[in-house]
Simulated scan of single mutants.
Amino acid sequence: MSKTAPAVGDRIVHKEFPAITRHTLALYCGASGDHNPIHVDIDFAKASGFPDVFSHGMLVMGYLGQALTDAVAPGKIRSFSTRFAAITQLGAQLTCEGHIAELLETGGERRARIALTTKDQHGETKLAGEAIIAL
């Protein structure tokens, strides 16, 4: 964050991620222990009515969390919450952003509520959320 006083509307978070590949999904399966075949088995995904495998929601949430902690020291984060908005397809190039939505004070501590989004290269919101940070 900059040294100037923060203002509503200021962009605090911005990070772009490379396209999600089958390899990305396989690595995430191993790291997370989430081996749901909908994310790695194309035949299973098609039998379930999808055109292909798609990303784990928690992988997308992890990207947003990484973007947040790249911009704000983890010790200044008071809360972080998200809601899934849409399936993230294979090949999605995600951009995570966060803007100050509100300045507030809690218990004598100056804080900001950050509105967070993760969108794909087509501008479709995949994840939305918010964080409260200490200033």
Rank of each mutant, 00 (worst) to 15 (best):
T4Q: 15
A5V: 15
G9Q: 07
D10R: 12
D10K: 07
R11G: 07
V13I: 12
E16G: 06
P18S: 09
R22H: 12
T24I: 11
T24V: 12
T24N: 14
T24A: 13
A26E: 13
L27T: 02
L27D: 05
C29I: 01
C29Q: 14
G30E: 06
D34H: 00
H35G: 07
N36T: 08
P37H: 01
I42C: 09
F44Y: 08
F44G: 04
S48R: 00
G49L: 04
G49W: 06
P51G: 10
P51M: 03
P51T: 07
D52F: 03
V53W: 10
H56N: 07
H56Q: 07
G57M: 05
G57V: 05
V60L: 07
G65R: 09
Q66R: 14
L68A: 07
T69Y: 07
D70P: 01
A73T: 10
P74F: 06
I77D: 11
I77G: 05
I77N: 06
R78D: 13
S79M: 02
S79R: 01
R83N: 04
F84V: 10
A85Q: 11
A85M: 11
A86V: 02
A86F: 04
I87Y: 06
Q89E: 14
Q89C: 00
Q89K: 10
L90K: 06
L94N: 07
L94E: 04
L94K: 00
T95Q: 06
T95R: 08
E97N: 11
A101Q: 15
T106V: 15
T106L: 11
G107K: 15
E109F: 13
R113P: 10
A115H: 06
K119P: 05
D120F: 02
D120Y: 04
K126H: 03
A128E: 15
E130T: 10
E130F: 12
A131M: 01
I132M: 14
I133C: 11
A134N: 14
L135M: 15
